[in-house]
Design a protein around this nucleic acid. Structure first.
Lengths: 252, 252
DNA sequence: CCACGAGGATGCACGTCGTGCATTGATGCA
DNA sequence: TGCATCAATGCACGACGTGCATCCTCGTGG
């Protein structure tokens, strides 16, 4: 998800196909089936590739500067310069620096939904979700230190929180649909849709958000990640709570 | 492909207790605002009261204009004029029009936490939460049409979503603390804090958000609220799901 | 091979945002 | 009554975000 190329050059191309800046909030785009690791298909011409490259350059430049100087202390102009584009062009891709910074992280949430859908139908909803989380976690674990720094940036920048939540809710909708597809169509066609998919997706993502937040908070030293094993355990614990019910009375 | 005021969109419980001078009508001596639950505050002098009044005036003016013209189509200057204050003064209270508009809603979420804390310890966490929700719901039901319009505004204004989520997460923290207090201190002093409070608070608020969102979505006609009974039922259903566990396998 | 249409990158102008700084007037206090 | 405080204001200014016209590159049909 995060990718921090050393130079503003052509970066990894990852999904995100929508045109036009998203006024005020984030994309809820359904990128064409672009599995986690995308391969350049002849589908896109040089033109499209250049556009994507520019987009990626902007995104990475934004993240790089934000990690180094803090989101509050950088201007869109600086990002544009770093990405070697005109100021005006920046707004052709993102409508604010916050959106650009968070965009780099959005892929993570998208990947989760993709992996979830890929799980066999035999698994229960929360089981499938757990496995999907593990897959995404492992993959991102390889991203290393830069990736961790980016996560901390997200966690500790108040001004990014809104954008993050926006991404999260967008993915919540996607996950809700995935859950609905998994449990099958409602008994009655056209009948009142069950609240279950939305509820489950919302609760699950909220749980994962809490877990990740706690995990990032555990670390006493910056750049020092608590063992991944801890994260796994807490994910399991949280999902287990959801699965078995989380009501409690005083003294328990 | 995103900025359209469409289906997805969170909402927040909101209430509008107006204390301050409401444009063109009574502006009594401004008796100390009457928060959800009485609070004796003999401490406030005229100075503080005036400040609060100004704040309320700004908040209400923002909400009123936003409901009438849409958040996107109003400027801070208009709000300031409507509230009869200088432009600069606006920023002494809120840092953006979105914040001002949503501020009116924040009280709702705060009230929920307050009511939750007021529930007897004998009730389980989710029971207490349910009762608290009902209390807040009933109280706000009396607010009538304007209140409903405000809720719809929140739901359908993409640019407000970030601020709403900010309010929501703030209350999530407060609720998490309340839950922690309710279930009692951890067995081991200073030991690793349980994830339960945060998890529970996050899941519960996420559930309530989904329920409210669905409820607002049910209505086919604007200004026409689905019966409150439906809301109650869905709240119960959602919390019941959380209480008994929400795992499921295909075909269930 | 070339002219032409589509679309991305830019430059420019402009209105709105949000903040720092200095000033004023009402308020609270000794 | 004299003084300290603080909300409200006015002013200046840099950053933001968008509409519009233009230039240039890529993709295509002739």
């Amino acid at each position: 998800m995060i990718g921090l190329p050393g130079r503003p050059g052509p970066a990894v191309i990852m999904g995100r196909h929508d045109d036009g800046p998203a006024r005020g909030n984030v994309m809820a785009g359904t990128a064409p089936p672009t599995p986690p690791v995308a391969a350049a298909l002849p589908e896109v011409g040089r033109r499209e590739r250049k556009k994507l490259a520019t987009r990626a350059a902007v995104r990475d430049a934004a993240l790089r500067l934000a990690v180094r100087h803090g989101v509050e202390n950088i201007t869109v102009e600086q990002i544009a310069t770093e990405a070697d584009i005109a100021l005006r062009t920046f707004f052709n891709h993102y409508s604010s620096k916050e959106e650009a910074v968070v965009a780099a992280a959005a892929a993570g949430a998208e990947a989760l939904v993709v992996e979830f859908r890929a799980r066999p139908a035999a698994e229960s909803v929360l089981q499938a979700l757990r496995e999907a989380v593990l897959v995404v976690m492992d993959r991102h674990d390889a991203a290393g230190r830069d990736h961790l720094r980016a996560l901390r940036l997200m966690r500790e920048s108040p001004s990014l929180m809104p954008q993050q939540m926006a991404v999260l809710t967008a993915q919540e909708q996607a996950l809700a649909r995935a859950v609905a597809d998994r449990v099958g169509p409602p008994a009655v066609e056209g009948g009142p849709t069950s609240i279950y998919p939305q509820l489950c997706a919302a609760a699950a993502l909220a749980a994962l958000r809490v877990v990740l937040d706690r995990w990032l908070g555990h670390a006493t030293d910056p750049d020092d990640a608590p063992p991944l094993a801890v994260l796994r355990r807490e994910v399991d614990e949280a999902l287990a709570h959801l699965a078995t019910g989380l009501d409690t009375v005083a003294g328990t």
